[in-house]
Amino acid sequence: MQSERLYPNPAEIPNSTAFKAGYLVTKNAGWRSVRPVIDAGKCVKCQQCYLYCPDGTISPEIAVDYDFCKGCGICAKACRLGAITMIPERGDADA
C-alpha cells in the first residue's frame, strides 16, 4: 500500500519517544472485504452510523472515508432505515 505521507526522515527522529500527534503513514483500506455504501435517498442523517463507527470513518455529514474504513458493518446494522448496504470489495480497495 502506498502512503500519502512519508515516513519521518532520520533528522526528524526524536530523541525521546515523543512525536507529532495524529501522524499517519498507512491507511486501513486494505483490511476491508466489504464496503458500506450509503443510499442518499434513504438517509435522513440521523448520525447513528457516525456515532457507532469504531474507526470514526463516517463524518457527521455521513460521508465515508474509504481510506480508513475497515468494513466492519456496524454502520449498516446501526442504520434503522436500511440506507447502508455492505457490498463485496472487488480487490481494488487500496485505490
Partner: peptide, 12 residues
C-alpha cells in the same frame, strides 16, 4: 476525530 487511523480489529 481524536483517535483515528488506528490498527484495532474491525468492529472493536
Amino acid at each position: 476525530e481524536f483517535f483515528f487511523g488506528h490498527k484495532a480489529c474491525a468492529g472493536c
